[in-house]
C-alpha cells in the first residue's frame, strides 16, 4: 500500500523524479510533477526510493496508507 506523495511547500520543480520514474510522474507545463497516483508495487520500490533520495528539495515521499 505505497503511494508517492509530494510536499508542495518544498517542491521547486527540479523534475528529477519525472526522469527517474517516467511511468509514475509527468511534468506539467510549469515543470511541476503530476502524479499518476497508482500504487507503487514491491518491484518498483527500489526505483521509487532512488527518486525520493534524488529529490534536491526533499519534497518527494512514499506514503504507506
Amino acid at each position: 500500500m505505497n503511494k508517492l506523495e509530494i510536499d508542495w511547500t518544498r517542491c521547486d520543480g527540479h523534475g528529477l523524479c519525472a526522469g527517474l520514474m517516467p511511468d509514475d510522474v509527468l511534468l506539467d507545463e510549469w515543470g511541476f510533477p503530476v502524479l499518476r497516483g497508482r500504487e507503487i508495487t514491491a518491484g518498483e520500490l527500489p526505483d521509487a526510493r532512488r527518486a525520493i533520495l534524488a529529490c534536491p528539495a526533499l519534497a518527494l515521499r512514499l506514503s504507506s496508507r
Partner: peptide, 9 residues
C-alpha cells in the same frame, strides 16, 4: 506562494 501549481496555476 508556497506551492508551484498554486502560484503558476
Amino acid at each position: 506562494g508556497q506551492c508551484g501549481p498554486c502560484v503558476f496555476g
